[in-house]
Simulated scan of single mutants.
Amino acid sequence: MYIIFLRFSDNKPAAKDYMAAHNAWITKGVADGAFLVVGSLQPQQGGAIIAHAEDREAIEQRVAADPFVQENVVTPEILEISVNTTAESMRFLKDDQAA
């Protein structure tokens, strides 16, 4: 499982120019099943994504394809979590990990 932080850079004012493409990128990540949760970091610091079901290289490639990353609107940080314990409803997060 991954937590991805997309923190605004000094180029934050350009966000409006790439918002539609960024939102399409998010929609594709959700549709592909890679993104479980997408939201905003408050107050207006950027965004965060909880992702799973892809290996580190695939996540890095997906994040690099974000128009906000490509245009330096945000700086990405990817944190990988080895899931040890979950609520029963989230067990799939643990079961997806290689033994």
Rank of each mutant, 00 (worst) to 15 (best):
Q97I: 09
M90A: 03
A99I: 15
P13S: 06
A87Y: 12
S40Q: 10
A14E: 06
G29Y: 00
A20K: 12
I59W: 09
R62T: 04
K12E: 15
G47Q: 09
R7N: 05
R91N: 10
G47R: 05
F8L: 14
H22F: 15
G39A: 00
K12F: 12
Q97A: 06
I81S: 14
A14I: 11
Y2A: 07
F92S: 07
I81W: 12
A34M: 05
D66F: 04
A98Y: 15
K16A: 05
V63I: 04
L79A: 06
W25G: 00
Q44A: 08
A64V: 08
Q42M: 11
T86K: 09
A21I: 09
K28F: 01
I78E: 01
V30G: 05
N84A: 11
D10E: 09
F92K: 08
A31Y: 02
D17V: 09
E88K: 11
E88R: 08
D66P: 10
I50K: 06
L79F: 13
F68S: 03
V74D: 06
I4T: 10
P76F: 01
Q45F: 11
W25L: 01
R91K: 03
G33L: 02
A64H: 15
M1D: 15
S82A: 07
L41K: 10
I3M: 06
V38S: 02
K12N: 13
A87K: 10
A58M: 08
V37Y: 00
V63W: 13
F92R: 01
K94D: 11
A48T: 09
D10G: 11
I3A: 08
N11C: 02
R7S: 09
R62P: 11
A87R: 14
V74K: 04
K16L: 05
L79C: 04
Q45I: 07
A51N: 06
M1T: 12
V63E: 01
F35A: 03
A51S: 08
H52V: 14
Q97V: 15
A98C: 13
E54K: 13
D10H: 03
K28W: 00
P13D: 14
Q44R: 08
N72T: 13
S89I: 12
I78G: 03
P13L: 13
A87I: 14
D10K: 03
S9H: 02
D55M: 05
H22G: 07
A24R: 06
E77M: 05
V63R: 02
Q97N: 09
L93F: 07
Y2P: 12
E88C: 15
A31N: 04
A87C: 14
G29F: 01
F5R: 14
N84T: 15
A24T: 15
D55S: 14
G33S: 00
G46T: 03
L41M: 08
S82E: 12
Q70T: 06
N72W: 12
Q42T: 15
A53C: 08
D32R: 00
T27H: 04
A53W: 09
Y2D: 15
D32M: 01
E54A: 06
N23F: 03
I26D: 02
H52K: 11
E88F: 11
M90F: 13
G47E: 00
I4Y: 03
Q42D: 14
A15R: 12
E60F: 13
A31L: 00
V73C: 07
A51D: 03
P67S: 01
V83N: 13
A98Q: 15
D32N: 03
G46L: 05
A58S: 02
